[in-house]
Design a protein around this nucleic acid. Structure first.
Length: 485
RNA sequence: GCGCUGAUAGCUCAACUAGGCAGAGCAACGGAUUCUUAAUCCGUAGGUUGAGGGUUCGAUUCCCUCUCAGCGCACCA
């Protein structure tokens, strides 16, 4: 008897036995006075006062020794040991036989320290709070199977404290960002996930349909164009922590749904956005982790000081050893061919240059670096550079070869905006799939007057990965997308 | 989408390049045990070896197809 069905049957039998004794195996409420960590923090006083405490949690370990049983339960703060003896429980000690690892129980008792020095609760009253019918993974090794961790995240969270810590840090990071922006008078807003036209980024969308309106809708790939409408509306400083959806491949840094914060500040430019993101990440690292040097995957990254700024074209010059500004389209294509850079399906000079950038530059940039002044062709929503009309005022924040943020001095000239969208449509006609569609309603909003604005988008999942030293995005998303089995 | 690797009891893992009755620990069940620490001791049970097909007297093992996952590539402001 130990197949999974037999486990269930045995436990259901125990549940029935509880019911026969008039005990509800799934009661409604239990009054908790302390978490496990509160017991440890206050143990001297609790012991001196002989206070009665009540704690609740899931049974993780159980050592039965006849008339004495030691149990470790886990609550949201950690493990605490229970000492259960017939001397204190009397007839109810019998019920200990009906307990299983995995059950959720509540106990009342006094705190003491065992001979071996472990803080423990001497249980006077024990209550079943939820009978568990299925066995937990093995107590020592926990879950090793990666697929199981993702498919049954609840088991991963029960068994693996590292997993729980990562998601608590994720919470801390998001909370820090929220507080940071709220303190600076930014307004948190919510904009549509279902959008009649998608925009604000280059990506393939998910398509859905509204039945009663008989209308096709896209899940947003970005909330940029809505947030900037709000800047037109006079909110001036807005942000949204947004779930975005992109119908693309899945790998260590991409999940089809992911979280991005976009921030817009009126009367600011991209230099202000550099200051904002640099200060945000530095103060966050200090506050949450107590340091500005972090280790990621064996490499040390120093977040302190002013981050390097390198011009996009200079970066290509430095790492690819060519001056793309001086090269014509044929020379660029030839260069790609010679360096095995695949530009199949890419249309337009900007896309080809950007391909060279991704292939030859990106992975070489390790320390936090602002790559600034991208080509105008690949940046339809950014303002022309104040000193060079081939470039825009834009930056991408790269760390360890990965992009963490993207920001512009936002384009607020409606005439130029229309021209940029039209260029995108021209690229589409020439066969480029990934373009930004013209959004008349957005241009109209801009025609009423949009203040000069700095805007930035920061990939929250990647930032969490960086700060919690996680190698894959699946480890920082509670329920990453997997194929159904 | 392509390539490589993996899938054995609820969990963690064995069973080696001869192919020869599928095994252990934890968990479970019965028993002993009133301060244990991954408790210990005695005993018991637990498997369609991811799915399907093939080769063979005989397949967890060799071959083929499929499913799922990991890694790499491709894709990916």
């Amino acid at each position: 008897m130990a197949g999974i069905e037999e486990y269930r049957e045995q436990r259901i039998k125990k549940m029935e036995q509880l019911k026969e004794k008039g005990i509800n195996p799934y009661p409604y409420k239990f009054d908790v006075t302390h978490t496990s960590s509160e017991i440890f923090e206050n143990q001297e006083k609790l012991i001196a006062d002989k206070s009665e405490v009540s704690v609740a949690g899931r049974i993780m370990l159980m050592r039965r020794q006849g008339k004495t049983t030691f149990i470790k339960i886990k609550d949201r703060k950690g493990l605490i040991q229970l000492y259960i003896t017939i001397n204190l429980l009397g007839d109810e000690y019998e019920n200990v036989k009906l307990l299983d690892i995995g059950d959720i129980i509540g106990v009342k008792g006094e705190v003491f320290v065992t001979h071996r020095g472990e803080t423990t609760i001497a249980v006077k009253k024990l209550e079943m709070l939820a009978k568990s019918l299925l066995p937990l993974p093995e107590k020592y090794h926990g879950i090793q199977d990666i697929e199981l961790k993702y498919r049954k995240r609840y088991l991963d969270l029960i068994m693996n404290d590292d997993t729980k810590d990562t998601f608590l840090k994720r919470r801390d990071i998001i909370r820090f960002i929220r507080n940071y922006l709220d303190d600076r008078d930014f307004v948190e807003v919510e904009t549509p996930v279902l959008q009649p036209r998608y925009g604000g980024a280059f990506a393939k969308p998910f398509l859905t349909h509204h039945n009663t309106l008989d209308m096709d809708l896209y899940l947003r790939i970005s909330d940029e164009l809505y947030l900037k409408r709000l800047v037109v509306g006079g909110l001036e400083r807005v942000y949204e922590i947004a779930r975005d959806f992109r119908n693309e491949g899945i790998d260590k840094t991409h999940n089809p749904e992911f979280t991005m914060i976009e921030i817009y500040q009126a009367y600011a430019d991209y230099y202000d956005m550099m200051d904002l993101v640099q200060n945000l990440i530095q103060t966050m690292a200090k506050k949450l982790f107590g340091k500005e040097k972090i280790e990621y995957n064996g490499q040390e990254i120093d977040l302190a000081g002013d981050w390097e700024r390198i011009d996009y074209y200079d970066a290509i010059k430095k790492f690819a050893d060519i001056d793309v500004k001086e090269m014509n389209d044929a020379e660029l294509t030839e260069f790609c061919k010679n360096h095995e850079i695949d530009i199949e399906g890419k249309v337009g000079r900007g896309k080809i240059i950007d391909e060279i950038f991704s292939e030859m530059v990106e992975k070489n940039i390790i320390n936090p670096t602002f790559v600034i002044n991208q080509p105008v062709e690949i940046s339809p929503l950014a303002k022309i550079h104040r000193e060079d009309n081939k470039k825009v005022e834009r930056f991408e924040l790269l760390i360890l070869g990965t992009e963490y943020a993207n920001a512009f001095s936002e384009l607020n000239d409606p005439i130029d905006q229309r021209r940029r969208f039209e260029y995108q449509m021209k690229l589409r006609q020439e066969g480029e799939m990934e373009v930004q569609e013209i959004d008349e309603d957005y241009i109209e909003a801009m025609e009423y007057g949009m203040p000069p604005t700095g805007g930035i988008g920061i990939g929250i999942d990647r930032l969490v990965m960086l700060l919690t030293n996680r190698e894959t995005i699946k480890d920082v998303i509670l329920f990453p997308l997997l194929k159904s089995k």
